[in-house]
Design a binder for these strands. Sequence first.
DNA 1: GTAACTGCAAAATATTTGCATCCTT
DNA 2: AAGGATGCAAATATTTTGCAGTTAC
Lengths: 140, 140
Amino acid sequence: MMTDSKNTLKTYALRHTDCRESILEAFLNKSAALSHGDLESLLQDGFDRVTIYRTLKTFVEKGILHKIPDDEGGVKYALCKEECSSHEHHHDHIHFKCSTCGDTTCLESVHIPAIRLPEGYVREDVNMLVQGICPNCIPK
Amino acid sequence: MMTDSKNTLKTYALRHTDCRESILEAFLNKSAALSHGDLESLLQDGFDRVTIYRTLKTFVEKGILHKIPDDEGGVKYALCKEECSSHEHHHDHIHFKCSTCGDTTCLESVHIPAIRLPEGYVREDVNMLVQGICPNCIPK
DNA sequence: GTAACTGCAAAATATTTGCATCCTT
DNA sequence: AAGGATGCAAATATTTTGCAGTTAC
């Protein structure tokens, strides 16, 4: 996974701009997934809403970020591991949403178990969202 | 699962109105999940958008319908099995979205497998969306 | 210099709220 | 009769598109 925003942009053949750097930094500094709205309030530099939308779309296309569908029908974004590329996203991990703090995180260590589909169905992609309480929010 | 819209409304202590009956009928007649937009174009009776929103919300609260988060961040709705109530939804099945015809369906026969979360995480609810090709869309 | 990126305006879409009226029970 | 449900208007939120000006390379 990338740890440096400038190198990442270079790697993906994307121009280095303030907005892109700030958005990457935001993801690198925060372990939880971020929505468009999260970024809008997080980035104090006042980037245009539209630019943030377009940056997110570009990052998903390039394989830098992946979408995480929220249970309520929103979308959040999180960094991809390095296996992702423009051509294909490879995600095998589950997503966890804490019902207390609201944070959604990638649990890279938990792989999505295999499922056997009924006759005639072909599996292409799987998304698994687990909701519950995260370690930080467990009452002691 | 309910098969009759009038009885269902009575069972859930909801008033019988044209809109509610039409919406229930739509779900009973179509095996795929429906979004608000789907219903709007499906129901030719011209019910108000707002009424449809409110009806869907009511049905989810009562345990008649459950939400299915779409991979792109939308929401669809599908009928619950009878174990659901106002208090709690009990769903253990996966959802399948066909990338060809776009239909999302409940595969009641496929249960969500157990997953072992890392230390400190508590599981409350799980949602699993499988994308691929449904039997109807498999090229012969 | 040039293509890529941004910001602004505006359109298109989606969802929510308030209120007066109507209808089920 | 009374409370619940609907329809309409309008506010709010979300996402997309077009275009002109700016900037990274």
